[in-house]
Amino acid sequence: MNWIRFMKKEVLYPIYLMIGIFLISISPLFMTSVGLHWPGLENITTVFTGLLQPDSLTYVNPKSGVERELFPIIFKAFGSSFFVLSIALVLAFLAALVLSIVLRMLTDRLYKGVISIASLFQSVPDVVYVLGSQIILVWIYVELDLKFAKFTGAGEQEAILVPGIVLSILPGIFFLKSMLSMLEEEGYRPYVELAKGKGLHPLWITIVHMLRNLFVRLAFQLKFIISLMLSNLLIVEYLFNNFGMTTFLLSYSQPAVFFVTAIMFFIPVYIFLKGVEVALYYATKQEVSL
């Protein structure tokens, strides 16, 4: 009985999400240059029937007006987006991990200072980081005549490294902040006291004993971090002129194209979250829903 309920939940949840994405993708039909209007059922059903034959979907480049087929080319954009996204996620996580362990080795008083500075930097709009990095790169190029990183390009010349680094800033700050506060909380647990009492080295305690518990607690915030990164990715890809998924969501967007792209975005993220959920279940025997 229990697993029937479980299956019902697992099947219903993605369907709810797909309905939500469909509603969002048809929302531009309701707006014209004079204000809200009812587009008529016909337009909505056209979008829906178009989705049933994904092979015939096309997109129109608004600048040149050329119509192209959506399907093989979207996978290229898909690859570019997820490459940048995964670089950023790994980079943010590793940097925050190393920094928080190093900071823990320093005095306890540094903790609160770093956390409050981190929360200030966290609220700075992501545009500022992207444009700041570009301004610095241009300045270096103009003043020192050095060009050690690409920050814009098209096609094969696409910049990957700088967007990845810039995209990792905000999640990195978020990781660092939550790791520091969790490490501090965790430091008062009995098992840490016991380990200290046995005379184990603090670095050993942190890495071997505390990090395991930390990962479990961090996983609960994964959904929030991913939503933060997707919102950042939008601006990073736009400003670094990358041919990614956001090109289709933003510039080439017709309702059907928007729906297909959003679903392609959503499926890997959803599978990733589910994977973490299952891993957590086996690691901690706790049922969590992310």
Partner: peptide
């Protein structure tokens, strides 16, 4: 759960 679609699609895009 329907609302949590907003986690996956940024509000500025919508």
């Amino acid at each position: 759960q329907t609302i949590s679609v907003l986690y996956f699609i940024p509000a500025s895009l919508i």
